[in-house]
């Protein structure tokens, strides 16, 4: 039961990854790509890590740290990238 759940979470995470990464190809603006990337990529990565956590609970401190890092840093990173690219991006 737990095995199915963890594999399901990982597959969902990979689907999220593809969903967030495919808009990267194409001629959209940086902010549009950043939006899809930061939302779908972070959710996908967190789903994968939760799937791993269900699979092997003995490594929980490491995986919990990974989830916290992802949640905080990816949000901050999205903000920083948007700020830098919009104020310096006269050329896009």
């Amino acid at each position: 039961m737990i095995d199915i759940l963890s594999y399901g979470l990982m597959v969902i995470g990979i689907i999220f990854w593809f969903w967030g990464t495919f808009p990267l190809i194409g001629n959209r603006s940086v902010l549009f790509k950043l939006h899809s990337l930061s939302v779908a990529d972070t959710l996908g990565s967190m789903a994968i890590v939760v799937g791993l956590l269900l699979k092997i609970p003995s490594e929980w401190p490491l995986l919990l740290l990974a989830i916290i890092t992802l949640a905080i840093w990816n949000t901050v990173l999205g903000y920083v990238l948007a700020y830098c690219s919009s104020s310096g991006g006269k050329n896009d």
């Binding site: 990267l24 940086v30 990337l37 890590v49 990238l81 690219s85 991006g89």
Partner: peptide, 28 residues
């Protein structure tokens, strides 16, 4: 394929997250 530096930075952000998650999966 993209020459704009910010698009490259976005690609790098994506790669950096993905590679470390892959490392985590392999370690588990």
């Amino acid at each position: 394929q993209d020459d704009n530096i910010w698009q490259k930075m976005l690609a790098f952000a994506s790669i950096a997250t993905k590679t470390s998650i892959m490392m985590l999966v392999i370690s588990v």
